[in-house]
Amino acid sequence: MNTIAVIMILIGLLFFTGGAVGIIRMPDFYSRLHPAGKLDTMGLLMSMLGLAVYALGDMTLGEALTSLKIILIVVFVFITSPTATHAIVDAGVRAGLEPWTQDRH
C-alpha cells in the first residue's frame, strides 16, 4: 500500500513541478493559464489520491472517513478549477488583452 502511495505522490509532485515551470516559461497570459490551471489540478489529483491511500492505513472507520474527505476535496477541486480558469480568461478577454501568436510569414 505504501509503495503505491509513494509512487502516486511522486507523480503528483512531477505534475506540480511542470505547472510551476510552465507559469514561468510561457510567453503570455493566455498560454500561462494552460499549465497553471490544468497541470496543478492533475498534480493535486495524483498526490491527493496517494495521500488518501496512505491515510487509509489499517481500515478503521475514522481513517476511511478521512480518506473519503480527501477524495471529496479532489472532486471539489475538479468542479471548481475549470470555473476559476474560465473566470480569469473571461476577465482577460473583456479587458481586451491580445493573445500572443507565433509569427509565421
Binding site: 493559464l33 499549465p35 490544468k38 475538479f78 478549477s81 475549470p82 474560465h86 473571461d90 478577454v93
Partner: peptide
Amino acid sequence: NSITLTPGTITI
C-alpha cells in the same frame, strides 16, 4: 468544463 479541464484548450 470538459474542454477547459483538458490541458491545451480553454473555453473562452
